[in-house]
Write a protein that binds this DNA or RNA. Structure first.
Lengths: 216, 216
DNA sequence: TAAAAAACAGGTATTTTTATCTGGTTTTTA
DNA sequence: TAAAAACCAGATAAAAATACCTGTTTTTTA
């Protein structure tokens, strides 16, 4: 019997996965949580041995990356399977680098989820073609300048980026932050370099992808 | 017995929901599809009476809104339940206006999905507090300038907008569309006016909100 | 089917953004 | 706790985006 924990904030998706997993005779979902912090707390209180954890990236309170880093330290025997909508290579790279045992896109089919669970329990890791490819690109030095961006973006840069997303010009931003327009343009430029994009459009896309700016 | 169809492109989410629905004794998922076009085709070939359809908004080929409009004409007896990640009022408004019988966010819990299915079958409609609120705002004239925007944007403008989101400059866009840079700038300007935003950041946000550009 | 409206194509001038710089300050880390 | 790295602030020139125009062609609609 394989015991599974799942951290995923979308209730319906979570319940659906649990239903599918519990329908398999030797799989059992022992723990379910809304976010990473919840997972860590529940694990401390859990008497059962957990073999694998399905972890979402976008979660409130404690996100997937941070959660997994702590998991590696506090629960090194639990295999971490990332289950996310993000298919960009930089996510795969960041997660694998941080110690993920498997990386699955949410649009994978269930048989792959099952396969990944069995694989990580038996052989520690499960990497599909997409993941292997991302790792190759990473190793061949084709990695993005900023792996999981927001971590490497300074507070000031983040403030500027937020205001850019709110359609402010550099002058307006400088007035709101009480700095000169040139400085704002300096931050803008650093953002472009760090994120590795070409212009404002790229900055906005990055901000949305990384929840620096939330779209309504 | 209530027969249900489901159109949802995320396989895992779809399979999960189906597993949950089929676990309820008097609910049965008869039809599952990847997109709207698939749904319409399968409905034509389906000998069973479908009582309700769960429809996602973001789907390839034929999206939720277009799908539902056709459903209203060709299958007026089937109740359409929108099941989406979008919680913005303009989506609710657009969908209800187009004839949705219920609107649910994907982070609803399963009991609400079940409740909504029973409600639309018994009483045609199911609207929760959030939906009612959006409809009130709509009726009180607080609706956004562009309800589901893309309708008012020409094909050419949409092409330009897509390329803007892909971080192309006006010159690059002009080369890709075989028109002059000035023309591209003209389209850009019209987009700014129609959408009512200030700059590229606003254009990108609009494109994402209205699924003209899909973020990964 | 004419008239009207909308879409498409383009030009010019101004403003904003982007590419490269310099140097001081704060934070890491060896 | 020095040295190194990263952050913050800024300037200037070049490139790109935006504001404001004029026409032509295609679609609507009265």
């Amino acid at each position: 019997m394989i015991n599974i924990a799942i951290a995923e904030d979308q209730v319906l998706f979570r319940k659906g996965i649990i239903s599918l997993l519990n329908a398999v005779t030797d799989l059992r979902v022992v723990l379910e949580c809304n976010n990473g912090e919840d997972l860590l707390q529940q694990l401390d209180a859990c008497p059962e041995t957990i073999h694998a954890a399905l972890i979402d990236i976008n979660m409130p309170v404690l996100n997937g990356l941070e959660t997994m880093k702590i998991m590696r330290e506090k629960h090194p025997d639990i295999r971490n399977i990332i289950l996310t909508i993000h298919e960009e290579e930089r996510y795969i790279q960041a997660m694998v680098e941080a110690g993920a045992n498997a990386y699955l896109a949410k649009n994978a089919d269930f048989s792959e989820v099952e396969k990944a669970i069995r694989a990580v329990v038996a052989n520690d890791y499960y990497f599909n073609e997409q993941t292997i490819k991302a790792m190759h690109h990473f190793m061949h030095g084709k990695k993005q300048k900023v792996v999981l961006g927001e971590m490497d973006i300074t507070r000031r840069e983040r403030e500027v980026l937020e205001l850019i997303c709110q359609e402010n010009t550099s002058l307006e931003i400088s007035q709101k932050l009480f700095i000169s327009e040139s400085t704002v343009n300096g931050h803008r430029n650093n953002l472009l370099l760090k994120i590795g994009c070409k212009n404002t459009a790229g900055l906005v896309l990055f901000a949305i992808r990384h929840n620096i700016y939330r779209i309504h």
